[in-house]
Design a protein around this nucleic acid. Structure first.
Lengths: 416, 416
DNA sequence: TCCCTTTGTTGACCTTTGAAACATATACCG
DNA sequence: CGGTATATGTTTCAAAGGTCAACAAAGGGA
């Protein structure tokens, strides 16, 4: 029914299937499988799909035809592969099938249009005078989408809306339990947004979506067990990929990695605990030693990170001792947290985003060495640590994934 | 293909299916589903299987017949249910289909015979003069099994061997990376054991197996997101159930929950880190204030835990102030760790085993209150905390699950 | 140009499930 | 006590999916 089988260890891992019916269910699962392969793995030949799925040539032919009929995929002329044998046509996920993404922040709301294959068609950043309320966010998005309506109708097929929220979200019903920086508290977001736009909408925590995005299209490609840690002005968020799927927890609040203990003698965190990672590894403290009020990430990189890629660590003389000391302190604390996560998750790799990425880039070797020294036994030796790749596209692509989820699970389902 | 479907939310969650072929694969999956339901959910009527699986009456009939033909299930006369309609026969997993379980410890090796449905047929505790080596363990088990051979052949069908190891195990190949208390280091265990016994053998970490056992047959029944913490003389082990399946990690070493930070000013742990949970919450410290060298768990309970079940906390005058203070300190530290795990996993419940269970039973309300006060926001309010139920059967049943895994995944596969 | 390799296409075949009709066994009710 | 309603097992048959084998197509290599 799926791709991955005991007899075919190289095939990608797939999601669980649904209920009884063989006919319907089998086909649904295989359609889902193929479309997901195209979306996450990019365009590929029918022959590749055949090999990777473990399904029969004939079946792949039928499935691709059905996906094409559904308008979800299309085929193009074969490449000049140079190999013997009949050339195999290239199958593409239809990038005109799009998700609308919404990313509310304290000073702006970013709206995106993302196609299958993570194709970023369009992005609009709408600056707000003040921190938006839910109602304001809905209004802004409705207005922006209304402005694009004719273009959307003419060129695209919208399958849904994905909303990335910087806070605690119950992703089952799209309710925000608490988004401290937005001041949102116990509010339904996905419901009103979906009603206003006329498309099904889903909301989830931004760090979790970022994890998904990096794991599918960024530094974590091909990795099924990874921990993503993102540092922003508002704190440290994270997400955990376990066996290829997001760690959600009973209520969908798992992965609050910024709120784990790193210093018993630390200060009290806004979350109520003491010595949380996000109180110790903190952009504010970094800015303080840099003598700055605020900073864009690119500026931070320019200030801290060695420009010569051959140089792994910034020469000490480029940074003042204060800055150097603070960076090192934060790296060491971060290592402590990573050491904890290694004991707990034994992941294949860590991906660091936001200012954690900059911090890491200042001196990757210090962090790697520190992680080794504070890890359970030798577990820290084999773990990979990378900087996030997607940067500004991260949340937009992550949110799109949320909107695509239903389509990918059942491509022939309720017609979009 | 499975049980759980969007249209049938109450159906149990199932594992992912295998590769392409519909015919073979569909049947395999459904057989697996039904046998798993019988094994984990106990004997039930065909009508119940029909409802819970979402499959058709006819299909269930065929599947049950096939399982019966395979010798994995049998039917008995219907109960006098008192309901209208034709009575439905009761289907049982065949408890004569057994796993041999092995649980090596510092002073003894426990060997068990466990049938489907977690039926404990037999258990033998073989005391060893000294800490056994792998070779000695294999010899002991071989001898014990040889002694039971005629009985096994006459009454049972052995499908495999499950070995629970107190240490780091690569459960893919059954190799022990490190079992400090046994002094085992980088040794293959499942291989030699399986060869000696002539059955397929698998090995895994004991705490992980305990987690599985409690989640299926103990305090965690029906819970798909739980954290299990076990305290023994050798430290604190744990396991995490995520969405119904064990958190394994990239190399199978996830869940070393005893080695997460709880006190930055703590002592160095044997694992190389500082301030680990298992150095702070520790049976040795408890024994020290009790003035004892060693203690069986039952004795500990008798000393600490209120006998009257209506009393939630031991009256202060039953414990000396020293003991009381140490118990409270350990409970508070444990709460800190649980608070961390809540941030990370957002589980539905925690299950506490070993001396952690006793500690909890001394004063459940103190732990619950402390957890609330050190949890991320209100996440600590809804989490359930229970004491483990399976006690002495825990590891035997957990290890059996390991041996049953292959059979459950493909009941009609390679004939056992 | 001919052969080989690989892949798409087509139709026959096998397997599985589900649905319907029928059979069976119990409770309920007068 | 017998008829009716209800629920479930059983049997038969149709629908649907996938595989397989044979054939066709398209390119490389000699």
């Amino acid at each position: 029914m799926t791709l991955a089988g005991t007899s075919r260890p190289s095939a990608p891992r797939q999601l669980a299937a649904g209920v009884g019916n063989s006919n319907d269910q089998t086909r649904r699962h295989n359609l889902s499988t193929i479309l997901t392969m195209l979306h996450h793995g990019g365009a590929q030949t029918r022959a590749q799909l055949t090999r990777r799925s473990g399904l029969n040539r004939s079946t792949i032919g039928a499935l691709v035809t059905e996906l094409a009929d559904l308008g979800l995929a299309y085929e193009t002329e074969p490449h000049d592969s140079g190999l013997v044998g009949r050339p195999s046509p290239i199958v593409h996920a239809n990038e005109k099938v799009v998700a609308i993404t919404v990313n509310p922040d304290v000073d702006a709301i970013t709206i995106g249009v993302v196609g299958l294959g993570a194709e970023l068609h369009k992005r609009i950043r709408f600056e707000t005078a003040s921190v938006p309320t839910v109602r304001e966010a809905v209004n802004v998005v409705t207005a922006v989408v209304a402005g694009m309506q004719s273009e959307l109708e003419a060129q695209f097929r919208v399958v849904g809306v994905g909303i990335a929220i910087p806070g605690l979200v119950n992703s089952n019903d799209g309710t925000v339990l608490l988004a401290p920086h937005l001041g949102w508290h116990d509010e339904s977001v996905a419901g009103p947004m979906g009603d206003a736009l006329g498309y099904p909408a889903r909301a989830a925590n931004d760090a979790g979506l970022a994890t998904v995005a990096e794991s599918l299209f960024g530094s974590g490609r091909g990795v099924s067990d990874l921990v993503y840690l993102n540092g922003s002005a508002s704190g440290i968020g994270g997400g955990v990929l376990v066996g290829g799927s997001m760690l959600r927890g009973a209520e969908g609040f798992a992965g609050e990695l910024g709120h784990t203990l790193v210093n018993s003698a630390g200060i009290r965190c806004h979350c109520g605990k003491v010595g949380c990672l996000e109180t110790e590894v903190n952009l504010g403290r970094l800015l303080a030693v840099l003598g700055r009020d605020s900073l864009e990430l690119d500026e931070l990189d320019a200030l801290l990170v060695p420009t010569d890629p051959a140089v792994t660590a910034t020469p000490a003389d480029q940074l003042t001792p204060d800055v150097r000391a603070e960076v090192d302190r934060q790296l060491d604390v971060l290592a402590l947290a990573i050491g904890n996560f290694i004991s707990v998750f034994n992941p294949e790799s860590f991906v660091l985003g936001g200012f954690l990425g900059s911090l890491f880039a200042v001196n990757p070797e210090r962090l790697r060495a520190a992680v080794k020294s504070v890890s359970f036994g030798t577990l820290g030796d084999s773990v990979r640590i990378d900087r996030a790749q997607l940067r500004s596209r991260l949340l937009t692509i992550g949110a799109a994934e949320l909107a695509f989820a239903e389509l990918l699970a059942d491509p022939a389902g309720t017609s979009f």
